[in-house]
């Protein structure tokens, strides 16, 4: 059995960890690291019968993730202190939101940048408030900066000069140029207060955003992690609210993201064994391509299907912008890469 299949089976609870040989652990741990999910696996198998070296490594990972989450929530607090005096309300998104709300998918989850959502009408004031509070522009070139401001759903990334942490300030959850336009005002106005006092998206919107981020915007980098978030949050939201799946369907429709949300649900069933209600539990031939993309890693954590990876990369751009604009964007990027690689450095955006 391949390492990635073993890893997914361990998460789904289909495989008894006591049956893994050393080479299985090597592969599963390597794959989990490549997917930035080692601490998630460590939480999932907490208390299981594990070889001593694995148990020790997992304990390290849980402890490190706890520190990292405290640091991530501190960034949320820093943003609050910067934005509250200006009366700017914001909603936490993704990892920081899951941690603030004490959700099960937050256990061991890696949290990168702080992602927040503000009203589009507040975006300039939010930018100024953050600049005044010590965040500054990441050095970028004029094309990237203008591109963010004209076409993206977020400001160009800001980084705090003392703490070296990045913040992404969104005014909606998909690029402006995307074929789909979610209802950003509804996202903001229906947000709820989390256990730690920060506003987070309401349960249905949270899963919609998770699916949108994974399937409508991104190229499925880190897809297994996003899918795990989706699986665990929908499972727990549905356990707390029997009408949850219906509400999710309605919200997905409102935001134009029904296809992405339903696909995320089917993939979480196929990979993690999620149980879906009637109307959701269907089969789609095209899901196979997504499963292949999600599982494309070998026992050393390397990408095994570069063509499929490339195809999803192109797909993400295709969804993000109209064809003529895509052509112009790729041409500009390609020319820049040529001039940069001839001068010795390189970057990929």
């Amino acid at each position: 059995m391949s390492a990635i299949a073993t890893f997914v089976d361990l998460l789904a609870g289909r495989r008894d960890p006591a049956t893994l040989a050393r080479s299985d652990w090597d592969g599963a741990i390597g794959v989990a690291r490549s997917e930035a999910m080692l601490a998630t696996l460590a939480h999932r198998l907490h208390g299981a019968d594990l070889p001593p070296a694995v148990a020790a490594l997992f304990a390290d990972q849980r402890a490190a993730a706890q520190v990292a989450q405290a640091q991530a929530l501190w960034e949320a607090e820093m943003a609050r202190r910067a934005l509250a005096p200006a009366g700017i309300e914001f909603v936490l998104l993704k990892g920081a939101a899951y941690a603030a709300a004490g959700m099960a998918c937050a256990a061991g989850r890696q949290i990168g940048d702080l992602d927040i959502l503000v009203l589009a009408s507040d975006i300039r004031r939010a930018e100024n408030a953050l600049l005044n509070a010590g965040w500054e522009w990441v050095k970028s070139d004029p094309y990237d900066d203008a591109y963010y401001r004209e076409h993206m759903h977020e400001l160009p990334p800001l980084i705090h000069k003392a703490r070296d942490r990045m913040i992404d300030v969104h005014h909606t959850i998909l690029p402006r140029t995307h074929r789909i336009t979610p209802d950003a005002l509804a996202l903001m106005s229906d947000a709820v207060e989390s256990a730690k006092g920060y506003a987070v998206l309401c349960p249905a919107d949270m899963a919609v955003h998770c699916a949108a981020h994974m399937l409508a915007d991104g190229d499925l980098q880190g897809g297994l992690r996003n899918l795990w978030d989706f699986h665990i949050m929908t499972r727990d939201f549905a356990a707390a609210d029997p009408g949850y799946w219906g509400k999710l369907d309605g919200r997905a429709l409102l935001h134009g993201l029904r296809e992405a949300v339903h696909r995320a649900a089917r993939l979480s069933r196929d990979l993690y064994g999620a149980r879906l209600p009637e109307g959701w539990d269907r089969q789609y031939g095209t899901d196979g391509w997504f499963r292949r993309r999600l599982l494309a890693r070998d026992d050393w954590g390397r990408v095994t299907e570069p063509l499929i990876e490339q195809a999803f990369y192109i797909r993400s751009h295709w969804l993000r912008m109209p064809p003529a604009m895509l052509a112009r964007h790729l041409w500009t990027k390609w020319r820049k890469r040529q001039s940069v690689s001839s001068s010795g450095a390189s970057s990929r955006k």
Binding site: R22, D26, I29, G30, P51, A53, V54, W300, G301
Partner: peptide, 13 residues
């Protein structure tokens, strides 16, 4: 110890 799984992976490629 041949039974011990790896903490860290290095790839030279």
């Amino acid at each position: 110890d041949e039974t011990r799984s790896a903490d860290a992976t290095v790839r030279l490629f």
